[in-house]
């Protein structure tokens, strides 16, 4: 049996890729925001703020301890039971953003905690408030330290966004599947789809490596792990 490829697939797959990229970008941005807040709560919310610490911790454990696919199903098929209905794209975005926020929270927390204790003390000794110290001293360092694990998470979410076809979104995976269901060229289509994902992963890896290098500060350890 011969492999058969068709150039006509590419424009359709391209449209799917656009959706995949949009979904990934949006969920990573929302997740970064949520993750940073969760991490700050988990590191600094003590005393009268400790209920927030407990909430943030519970959130992180819950979302890291359950499959993203189940979370997606709850959002898309479960929430309508209580009158909340989303389009497939929005369901995907909501589930992915909630999920990656929990993971990013752990990366941010690790980065914040690896900023040396003396940095906070020195900031306070100059007279900065705790919030100022967090904002001007701790966070800028943590953001640089978090780049390698964050890049891995980005690539992870790009690949994992393929689950949204299961609720009917026309992402790269979904489009590939739709075409294949019509012409039964599953192998060829998924080889092409795999190649496109690989290309995007490669592009992202190189981009993030460049970003990391651009933002590098001597002495601020960026112990990179390969993506």
């Amino acid at each position: 049996m011969n492999l058969v490829f068709d150039w006509a697939w590419l424009p359709q797959l391209g449209r799917g890729l656009v959706l995949t990229v949009e979904l990934t970008a949006a969920c990573m941005a929302l997740g970064a925001l949520g993750g940073l807040v969760l991490a700050l709560l988990r590191v600094y919310a003590r005393g009268w703020l400790s209920p927030l610490y407990a909430l943030a911790s519970a959130y992180v454990h819950l979302f890291r301890g359950t499959p993203l696919l189940v979370q997606l199903m709850i959002v898309h098929f479960g929430l309508p039971n209580v009158g909340i209905v989303f389009t497939p794209f929005v369901s995907g975005l909501v589930a992915m953003a909630l999920n990656t926020a929990a993971y990013q929270a752990e990366y941010f927390r690790g980065a914040i905690q690896s900023v040396k204790a003396g940095q906070m003390m020195a900031a306070r000794s100059v007279g900065l408030t705790r919030l100022q110290a967090i904002r001007h001293v701790i966070i800028p360092q943590a953001l640089r330290l978090v780049i390698p694990p964050w890049s891995n998470e980005l690539i992870y979410m790009l690949k994992y966004s393929s689950i949204v076809y299961m609720v009917g979104a026309a992402d790269l995976m979904g489009v590939g599947r739709t075409i294949a269901a019509k012409n039964f060229r599953f192998l060829e289509l998924f080889l092409v789809v795999a190649a496109i994902y690989l290309a995007v992963v490669l592009l992202l890896t190189l981009t993030m490596r460049w970003v990391e290098k651009r933002l590098r500060v001597p002495g601020l350890g960026t112990s990179g792990r390969g993506a």
């Binding site: 900023v115 003396g118 940095q119 020195a122 900031a123 408030t129």
Partner: peptide, 20 residues
């Protein structure tokens, strides 16, 4: 306290310069 601290300088054994 922050005003007071700004009036009392502190020099640490291990410098604690802001790394970034």
């Amino acid at each position: 306290l922050n005003r007071i601290r700004s009036q009392i300088g502190f020099v640490f054994q291990d410098f604690n310069l802001f790394t970034h």
